[in-house]
Design a binder for these strands. Structure first.
Lengths: 254, 254
DNA sequence: ACATGAATATTGGAT
DNA sequence: ATCCAATTTTCATGT
């Protein structure tokens, strides 16, 4: 799986290495080095010289990782072109993208390691517990939201956007249900309000609005009240089995 | 910068390696291996056996990278605890987080390489062209939005959220300005509308609403019109010099 | 290609 | 600790 490694390469060797393995297009290339990183495109940024881990994947995506955080310090998805050259005695990689136009330039000031990794394409990935699943479950069991609720539509498109669940309650009133998989904020309230207003504009029937989520923030609940809308608590996920046997922790956070 | 490397380790050696270097807490640890990955928490997911690059940073963040895309296949930010053990003859790493409660479990079915990288903390990172910068610039030069505009407040908190710029125009009317660094969508229009309504509720003075962004989507512009709000085009970034000399591209996208 | 909305969003700042 | 809004959000999807 490890195609090649280069320890403490000089600039020329690093350029050759990158040239060869990036060109092949069938492996992931990594460089650990003191770098200077420049980004220009949708925004512009400069990283002062520092230690970074640079990863270039087969699709041309580039990410520059610092010592913490999941998110890279600097990145670029699916670049169209990658150039490598020596500039002022330093190996430099430049990755460009056309739409939108942007560019990352990494200068490898003091490369410690370069390696090429052959990652075979991997199997399927299964995800459960998304908003889509929650919507499906609630559409099948609307009584969880309110007894007597009858679902008319899922993902009903309107002028102002898609209504997650459109239903009729036991009293015959129309009900707009907005689902949030996680704690609902003011944005969700406003989204719901938008939909309810939209329905009211096209119908003279009474219309209720229900925000269904595992939790709400206090300001959001406030605003719901003042707008005459309702909140209904629904659990986001089926129970998580969480009592596996423990070993002593390896990691002590700073 | 490269503290240690282990090629094709057996499960026991890998566990020892991970134990040692994760415990040290001052280096980034990587494993290239055929893996099986399980996530359970805010959602639940399973990755079938496949080749992945696993990265554990000093802050306990875990990311499992596949062969393409900037985004990891599976990840977890800032875990509280990491455990390593042999289960059924396979080295397994389990990273847990308490708030919210979630867990990633990686089984290293066939490890090709494990390495520990000492990344020194890096220098400052400067970002230009963010919304904060744009706000600052426009607060200093409000005439770019409209001649005669006088800024009263920046980031004015209201009941329904913070107003980016609150101003008075040449005719004495109040002006709510919503800034977007990128193309403005309907969401931005509703945000602006929310703020304008909020101000009108507390003041009988005439109130205008201006959406300032480098571009708008057509539906958003439509809705602006129907709500009696305005759009003003402002460039998000200072000019980007883009005519550096080119070399032949190394990367040909599939 | 463009617009829209979800995401295990993540992250930083304010309260 | 909680809440809130920006993000080079990325990403999938519908039109």
């Amino acid at each position: 799986m490890i195609r090649a490694q280069l320890h403490r390469p000089d600039p020329a060797a690093l350029v050759d290495f990158l040239d060869e393995h990036l060109r092949s297009g069938d492996c992931l290339v990594q460089v650990v080095s003191e770098c200077e990183v420049l980004y220009s495109g949708r925004a512009a940024s400069v990283a002062e010289a520092g230690d970074y881990l640079v990863i270039v994947k087969q699709d041309g995506s580039v990410q520059v990782h610092g010592h913490r955080s999941v998110k890279p310090v600097n990145w670029q998805p699916q670049t169209d072109d990658i150039f490598v050259a020596i500039e002022d005695g330093v190996a430099v990689m430049r990755a460009e993208r056309f739409q939108p136009s942007e560019m990352v330039r990494v200068a490898f000031l003091e490369p410690a390691l370069a390696q090429a990794v052959g990652l075979r394409e991997s199997g399927m990935f299964v995800l459960m517990g998304s908003e889509a699943e929650m919507q499906q479950a609630l559409a099948r069991h609307p009584e969880v939201i309110e007894p007597g609720l009858e679902v008319l539509h899922r993902e009903l498109p309107t002028e102002v956007g898609g209504i997650d669940l459109f239903a009729r309650d036991a009293d015959g009133a129309l009900v707009v249900v907005e689902l949030k998989r996680s704690k609902a904020t003011q944005e969700a309230v406003h989204q719901l309000s938008r939909y309810v207003d939209g329905v009211r504009r096209t119908s003279s029937e009474p219309v209720r609005g229900i925000l269904a989520a595992p939790a709400v923030t206090a300001p959001a609940l406030n605003q719901l009240g003042s707008l005459g809308l309702e909140f209904r608590e629904v659990s986001a996920l089926p129970g998580i089995d969480d009592d596996a046997d423990r070993q002593p922790s390896l990691f002590a956070p700073v």
